[in-house]
């Protein structure tokens, strides 16, 4: 399912809303999660899962083709942990 299919499904379930409003709703939800992670905040959605920020230290990397040493900058990575309820449902519990 893509974002536009998600919007479509939500619009069907909410006939009183315009499609463009449903689009704004979906965009707002994900924008909010993105900005939270951008600030280094954690996003916890019980039953679904939690997004957190992992810090990766700077390290010396190597170009596998040339063997050349390159400096890899420190960076932040998003990390998702599936919620218990969703994990159980995936496995038919």
């Amino acid at each position: 399912m893509t974002k536009s299919e998600l919007v479509q499904k939500l619009a069907e379930a909410n006939p009183h809303l315009y499609l463009r409003d449903v689009e704004k709703i979906v965009d707002t939800v994900f924008d909010e999660i993105v900005s939270a992670l951008g600030r280094g905040d954690r996003v916890e959605l019980r039953g679904f899962g939690a997004f957190s920020v992992k810090e990766r230290a700077a390290r010396k990397g190597r170009n596998p083709r040339t063997g050349e040493t390159v400096q890899v900058e420190a960076k932040r990575m998003p990390f998702f942990k599936t919620g218990k309820e969703l994990r159980d449902r995936l496995n038919g519990k």
């Binding site: 939800v29 909010e32 600030r39 280094g40 905040d41 954690r42 916890e44 959605l45 019980r46």
Partner: peptide
């Protein structure tokens, strides 16, 4: 650091 939840969304 904060924790964002459904309520914030």
């Amino acid at each position: 650091e904060r924790t964002i939840t459904r309520a914030d969304l």
